[in-house]
Design a protein around this nucleic acid. Structure first.
Length: 700
DNA sequence: GATCCTCGAGTTCG
DNA sequence: CTCGAGGATC
């Protein structure tokens, strides 16, 4: 298309004309023509090239001007006018349309072996020997909705859903609202010539960002949210009122040509090139490869990298490139033999919700938890998932016995997304939040404005067990060999009734317990022994004071020389410390005001647990070193653990933060960094590699 | 009072 | 990793 400089000049001229535009029929006709031309180029830059030179608001302003002209002089409105994109009147229903050539489905391959087997079948079908290279095209399989667009004499005249492959629905009005779909493709010009009639096939999808925004909006309005972007795109396309469709920023990628009335490109790669040249968006990742090994590598790459995209993909489609070879291979039943869909392992599945249990956290927070019929998702078996809180369950109307959609959010954590109401039998039961603690029977409380219920009993056994787990955990006192099972066992046996008991464990008594054969008892006692000399920060963290995590515990340890000094501090002192406000100050004072907690501290003292600041916790030098500098570490560093790296920064007077922001001074990037490295680049924050970092923070 | 940033707490499976 | 809420800052 034209170069941006000329387009910008044309746009400026147009806008200044518009500012004092008195429409007379002749001027109006010219203006309409000019506006349409300019708008379609801007749309192309924005949606296809992804390189806009006009602000959205200015674009809308131009659209508004064109609409005014067309309203005034309706005869100037054309079928390709961008004003039609914003959506027309509701339709009574969708017309059925027969596809001139059916849209076939694809054979699937679920692993690399399946992909190679498909290739071998192609070679056999073509009468070629095993080692012969057959050029292929690899394309990302966008998880959206297949549609067929018909252009006649360069104009978009019809858009239809895939339907069952032979009959779909006419969604022309809705597809017109998708701005990346050109309403008109160049009819004149040297090459490429546009055939009299051409069908373009592709996928309509919703970008992930737009999906998240849409769901936020729906949730805020108290409406049902969509489980995934595909459903949201389908919901958008199937709106009878295309004005609603217009509010969803749907997008389109073409992937092939259907029937063509005229000359047809001789290969898949040439077809994609042609589509790009006439201004129809084609996924930029599509690549021609020379043999199956390259295709396998492509699939492998995107299996791992699919999250780097702004849209969902559920696999890779591999096609034989050459049209002649395609023709010779032909089709079986309803799938071509010359293409295959390499499917990624699903990250979403449906299963039955067998029951809902509740968990008690260290802080007394009560969390409902889904008991699921085990189901494989993305290579692991999921049988449990959190349901967060009462409102989460109620707002989604999740019932015991429901079939539910489960996915692995952020690639790891299973999440119950929504129920499938259509699968209900009537046997499902609504779940009611218990009013009493499942562990101790104490009535639960939910504070105004909070989402969670709490058990506030001081002696709740479940909370005590979680406290023991927390106290002994790696980040706190780090008593090796102490897991959650052991915490339950020792608490139930009565051996551990207070945190102090952890330091009074007796080898003999432990050995009398089940599962304590061999060295286990002695190891455990030794581990507790070693934990007596942990830092003050670790001890404060281990106590489990509300709002006091790792960072605040370290701040306290740097400010006060001992636990007694912390206990003696008043609210005002505490709140004056940077990073500590009224809420945390209050929480600390309240904790030490409780008699049992003071006894706990005395008990720990009596069994020889360190209660004083250790030399490495001394406040860092105010000047020199890295004083005042904030660091973020991402990726894996060689030969030095993340924790060691952070310790070194702190010892040199620097601060370590968890996420990259405008206040970050340096980002240390190791092997296979995450999104933090990207963000650093975006914000222009200096990046240190391993070498530069180690040079900056010499060994202590 | 609003906005940005940071921290705490809980999250599953092998 | 993600959510919600506390703290700092304007």
């Amino acid at each position: 298309m034209t170069d941006p400089v000329r387009l910008a000049a044309r746009t400026r001229a147009l806008r200044s004309e518009l500012s004092d535009f008195e429409p007379d029929p002749e001027r109006a006709e010219w203006m309409a023509l000019e506006l349409r031309g300019v708008l379609s180029e801007h749309a192309h830059r924005y949606y296809v090239l992804d390189d806009p030179i006009l602000a959205d608001a200015e674009y809308d302003e131009l659209i508004g001007a064109l609409r005014q002209i067309e309203d005034r002089y309706p005869h100037l409105r054309t079928v390709d006018s961008p004003t039609l994109r914003v959506g027309g009147k509701p339709l009574p229903g969708f017309e059925k349309v027969a596809h001139p050539e059916p849209l076939l489905s694809l054979a699937n391959a679920f692993d690399e072996e399946g992909l190679r087997a498909w290739y071998a079948r192609c070679l056999r079908g073509l009468g070629l020997d095993e080692a012969a290279p057959v050029a292929l095209v690899c394309e990302l399989k966008i998880d959206g909705l297949a549609v067929a667009l018909t252009y006649r004499d360069g104009m978009l005249v019809r858009a239809a859903t895939r339907g069952d492959g032979s009959v779909g629905e006419d969604i022309t009005a809705n597809v017109r609202t998708i701005r990346s779909v050109p309403l008109r493709i160049p009819a004149a010009g040297p090459e490429p010539a546009v055939p009299g009639s051409v069908e373009v096939r592709g996928e309509v999808y919703l970008p992930l960002e737009a999906f998240a925004a849409l769901n936020d909006r729906l949730a805020e309005a108290g409406e049902k949210t969509y489980a995934n972007p595909r459903n949201a795109a389908a919901g958008g396309l199937r709106q009878l009122d295309s004005r609603i469709t217009a509010q969803r920023p749907l997008r389109f990628f073409a992937y092939s040509l259907g029937p063509v009335d005229g000359p047809r490109p001789g290969s898949q790669s040439a077809a994609l090139r042609w589509l790009r040249e006439v201004g129809i968006p084609v996924n930029p990742k599509a690549t021609r490869v020379e043999d199956i090994e390259e295709a396998v590598a492509f699939c492998r790459h995107w299996t791992g990298d699919r999250d780097s995209l702004d849209y969902e993909i559920d696999g890779v489609v591999v096609k034989v490139d050459d049209l002649g070879q395609q023709a010779r291979l032909g089709a079986v039943s309803n799938a071509p033999r010359w293409a295959v869909a390499f499917k990624f392992p699903a990250r979403e599945a449906t299963t039955r919700l067998l029951d809902i249990l509740v968990n008690v956290g260290r802080t007394g927070v009560i969390k409902p938890e889904a008991v699921l019929e085990p189901v494989g998702i993305g290579g692991v078996t999921v049988s449990q998932a959190t349901l967060h809180n009462e409102d989460y369950i109620a707002s989604r109307d999740i019932r015991i016995g429901d079939t539910v959609v489960v996915k692995r959010a952020g690639d790891v954590i299973p999440q119950v997304v929504q129920p499938v109401p259509a699968a209900r039998t009537g046997e499902e039961r609504r779940w009611i939040m218990p009013r009493e603690c499942p562990a101790c029977g104490h009535p639960l409380e939910r504070l105004e404005g909070e989402a969670d219920w709490y058990c506030v009993a001081a002696d709740c056994p479940a909370q005590f067990i979680r406290l023991v787990e927390h106290f002994t955990s790696r980040g706190a006192m780090d008593i090796e060999g102490f897991g959650s099972k052991l915490a339950v066992q020792l608490a139930e046996e009565g051996l551990v009734q207070s945190l102090v008991d952890l330091f009074r464990l007796d080898t003999k008594r432990l050995e009398s317990l089940e599962g304590f054969a061999g060295k286990k008892a002695r190891n455990l006692v030794a581990a507790a022994e070693a934990a007596r000399h942990r830092t003050l920060g670790r001890l404060i963290l281990g106590l489990g004071i509300r709002h006091v995590g790792k960072t605040i515990a370290e701040i306290l340890a740097r400010r006060y020389a001992s636990i007694d000094a912390v206990a003696a501090a008043n609210e005002e002192d505490l709140a004056s410390i940077e990073g500590i406000g009224p809420v945390i100050a209050r929480s600390v004072v309240d904790w030490f005001a409780i008699g049992d907690n003071r006894s706990l501290v005395e008990g720990l003292r009596s069994v020889g647990v360190n209660l004083h600041r250790l030399p490495e916790e001394e406040p860092p030098a105010e000047t020199g070193g890295l004083a005042g500098q904030t660091f973020v570490v991402t990726g894996t560093l060689e030969g030095i653990s993340r924790k060691d790296a952070e310790d070194r920064i702190k010892r040199a007077g620097g601060k370590v933060a968890g996420s990259v922001s405008g206040r970050t001074d340096y980002v240390v990037v190791g092997e296979s960094p995450g999104s933090k490295a990207d963000r650093a680049q975006e914000l222009g924050i200096p990046i240190l590699d391993q070498e530069a970092f180690l040079a900056l923070v010499p060994e202590a």
